[in-house]
Design a protein around this nucleic acid. Structure first.
Lengths: 183, 183
DNA sequence: ATTGAATGAGACATCTGTGTCTCATGTGGG
DNA sequence: CCCACATGAGACACAGATGTCTCATTCAAT
């Protein structure tokens, strides 16, 4: 009986990350519930997106916690973060492109918290000499989001194998495309 | 009198890259033309998006030609490509997230051409030993699109200075975040 | 100055998605 | 076994966007 709100949100995220313009009816079908039930739990499309936003923030915060960014080297910490974020990658890809979320004056404060933590991670890596200093922490944070989302899409479209997600994403942002050795 | 089709497309791209759900009316206002005129030149919203797609493909192809990817080292070639693509970055960012374009059975063949050329560039760099071989050319191509789009957004939102676009985008994909030296 | 073509503004019907409602169903708890 | 409650299906009005039309205006060319 009772609708599984968590599962509905995951199904919605899976659909919306592929087709961000999906209607409430399509979301309901994808989640295997009636449209009326969907409206009973989420006042409207906006509320649904906000709930997804909240879920994405929670999951990324959980991933950050599990990744223990302050332990060990920055490179391994970043690899852990990417690996921990992979299960949420589809959802994050959707949220990242939903710039509607950042237009109103009611932006979820969770993003600022996340940005601050990831940004601080990059800055600390720079201060320790592990990371280069000519790329700003804000940009690195942005690029991390973008690459996670891009790889999630590439996996969805079959251009990247699912098992390679973590490697492709983390190694690209860590070392780039040029052959090189660590200092 | 005569509406400047090129300028209208550019204004539309500028608006849609910020607000991809903008209505035809908003696009018309942003382009400084009447909604009726917009419809006279583009049969509908879909036709407008297709025209933008065509423009984006043309511009990226032109950027590829100007960048002369086969001359000099792969790193400098990639820097040139990013620099040449910058004026089209907003448009490309919009098109990249418009996954609607890649759902139907009528996908513009231009993307395949572009993917093939950029992919080949990365593959050749790998074969010459300039680029690492553990990241697939398909993924590197995808990542290049994603980073160009992400940096375009970051510039729009003021998180990255416009003058830093080329540096931030190219250097990140070239060398990643880790401090390193070329081999 | 005149003419013709393109434009802007607005009216209009249409369509799609949304949000609310009702009602029958069926499932779980008491 | 029975009841309460959540659900699914469908109907409904509403809002917003779309696409088409008309008409007055304006600009350019002759």
């Amino acid at each position: 009986m009772a609708m599984d709100r968590e599962q509905v949100l995951r199904d919605a995220a899976a659909l919306l990350s592929r087709k961000s313009t999906a209607t409430m009816d399509e979301v309901a079908r994808a989640a295997g519930v009636g449209r009326a039930t969907l409206h009973r739990h989420f006042a409207g499309r906006d509320a649904l997106v906000r709930a997804l936003e909240e879920l994405g923030i929670q999951e990324l915060e959980a991933a950050l916690a599990r990744a223990r960014l302050d332990e060990g080297g920055g490179a391994d910490a970043l690899r852990r973060l990417v690996a921990e974020a992979q299960p949420s990658a589809d959802l994050l890809a959707f949220l990242y492109t939903e710039n509607q979320l950042f237009e109103g004056d009611q932006v979820n404060a969770g993003w600022a918290r996340l940005d601050a933590r990831i940004s601080a991670f990059f800055r600390q890596g720079q201060e320790r000499g592990e990371f280069r200093i000519d790329l700003s922490p804000a940009w690195l944070t942005e690029a991390l989001y973008a690459l996670i989302g891009a790889c999630a899409w590439a996996v969805m479209d079959g251009r990247v194998a699912k098992n390679d997600f973590s490697l492709m994403t983390a190694e690209l942002i860590l070392g780039g495309v040029r052959r090189s050795v660590e200092t």
